[in-house]
């Protein structure tokens, strides 16, 4: 996933919480069933306001609905790929935050551990507290000052891991 320097070891790969992909899956699931609800309403509305009487033939409807499901299925895997490739990598020398914004948009921030000044965890709200996810703020002495990694799984563990490596480096 990243090119490692000499004597560099990957200590942890931290991803966003599964709740992030579950939310997208639920939204896509709702989109998948939407035509079954919307189409009958649309047909009856059209009948009531105009002289429209024709029904969509059953197999034509089935064809378009299957095509719709294929689109939803593809979109889910695009979302999963974006979710899975969004990762925070902690090595014994640096922290690398890879943000897969979209399929063709990738952001890559690398912070040497010696530049880390503080690591802060922010868990705000009921769901983040229940499911143990939150934002990780890495304050650095570099140009970017603060790197924020949103909605990661168990941010306290990630913070502890980074601080352990930070202290090892400064011993």
């Amino acid at each position: 996933m990243i090119k490692l320097y000499e004597n560099e070891k990957v200590l942890a790969e931290i991803r966003k919480h599964w709740f992030v992909i579950a939310g997208e899956a639920i939204a896509l699931g709702a989109l998948a069933v939407a035509p079954l609800i919307v189409l009958p309403i649309l047909q009856s509305t059209l009948r009531s306001i105009s002289s429209f009487e024709g029904n969509i033939p059953f197999f034509t409807f089935l064809f378009f609905y299957s095509v719709w499901l294929v689109f939803i299925w593809i979109l889910f895997f695009v979302a999963w790929t974006n979710y899975y490739l969004d990762v925070l990598i902690v090595t014994n020398k640096r922290i690398v935050d890879i943000e897969q914004v979209a399929l063709f948009s990738r952001d890559h921030v690398s912070v040497p551990l010696r530049n880390v000044e503080d690591v802060k965890v922010e868990i705000a709200g009921l769901l983040p507290s229940l499911f143990k996810y939150g934002d990780l703020h890495v304050q650095t002495a570099g140009e970017s000052k603060e790197v924020i990694i949103p909605r990661i799984n168990r941010p306290h563990d990630a913070r502890r891991r980074i601080m352990e490596e930070y202290h090892k480096l400064h011993e």
């Binding site: 089935l62 064809f63 294929v70």
Partner: peptide, 15 residues
Amino acid sequence: SAVLFIFVAISFALS
């Protein structure tokens, strides 16, 4: 995807 495309193909032919 294969299952979905079977549905697409069958419904395409039957339509």
